[in-house]
């Protein structure tokens, strides 16, 4: 699908500003920070060494909830209010609409992650922080968030009800980001467990929080994102034939 990137950027910038014109962005960022605080600092002093690995392992599940909230309205709300019809009367392709919306949500994700930089900075004051794993950890968590947002935008494309979009993407996202990771230790070895392990976001995030960037992990997150975006694109396109 050929894409006019200017259209994508125009849509992205409107949507990004739209986030901050509504309470969604503020609520999501504040809630994530409020929950992350106690979760992070309590075990930190018990562990007794300067690392922010804990933060990333908490951010995963938090994003599994935050990302659906950030993405639920992207298409569903436009569909409900009717603005989708006007947006698609512009000389734009469906792919440009999806990509633009997605870019905006990635922007909000970046803002959200940027606000957590306060944790590694504080840790660096307290001890000798190795910044390598911090950067790769941020890369990993950004990729995971990107995959969750792509799932969210796909869910948002199939309904005009934001709540449905939220719960659909929450369910899928939570399974991939959290549940598989929880259950794998209790599952017998075998094909099912292998698949769960291969799909689990936690497993793919693990090595990046240690400072190791494995191409397979990066490719996995990118594949999930592309697949979900493709679904979103198809769902948006399918309105023409229904």
């Amino acid at each position: 699908m050929p894409t006019n990137f200017q259209n994508t950027l125009t849509i992205a910038s409107r949507q990004f500003r739209g986030y901050f014109n509504s309470p969604v962005a503020y609520i999501v960022v504040c809630l994530v920070l409020a929950i992350l605080g106690p979760l992070f600092w309590e075990p930190f002093f018990l562990m007794g060494h300067a690392s922010v690995r804990q933060m990333f392992s908490f951010l995963g599940p938090l994003l599994a909830v935050a990302a659906p909230a950030m993405s639920m309205g992207l298409i569903a709300e436009e569909r409900r209010s009717g603005t989708l019809e006007l947006l698609l009367a512009m000389p734009v392709r469906e792919s440009e609409v999806i990509l633009g919306k997605y870019l905006a949500s990635l922007g909000l994700l970046a803002v959200l992650l940027a606000t957590t930089i306060f944790y590694p900075l504080s840790v660096a004051q307290l001890g000798n922080l190795d910044w390598g794993p911090v950067f790769t950890g941020y890369l990993g968590i950004f990729l995971e968030g990107a995959a969750l947002l792509a799932i969210g935008i796909a869910a948002s494309s199939v309904t005009e009800n934001q709540l449905i979009a939220f719960f659909v993407s929450l369910t899928i996202g939570a399974a991939l980001a959290v549940l598989f990771g929880w259950f794998i230790p209790f599952m017998p070895t075998g094909a099912v467990t292998d698949v769960a392990q291969a799909l689990s976001f936690e497993q793919h995030l693990e090595s990046m929080t240690h400072g190791v960037v494995d191409t397979r992990d990066v490719i996995y997150f990118l594949s999930v994102s592309s697949l979900a975006l493709m679904l979103a694109f198809r769902a948006l396109e399918s309105r023409r034939w229904s």
């Binding site: 019809e85 698609l88 009367a89 309105r239 023409r240 034939w241 229904s242």
Partner: peptide, 8 residues
């Protein structure tokens, strides 16, 4: 809607 290509 057909003329604006919103639906086919």
């Amino acid at each position: 809607k057909i003329l604006t290509c919103f639906i086919a």
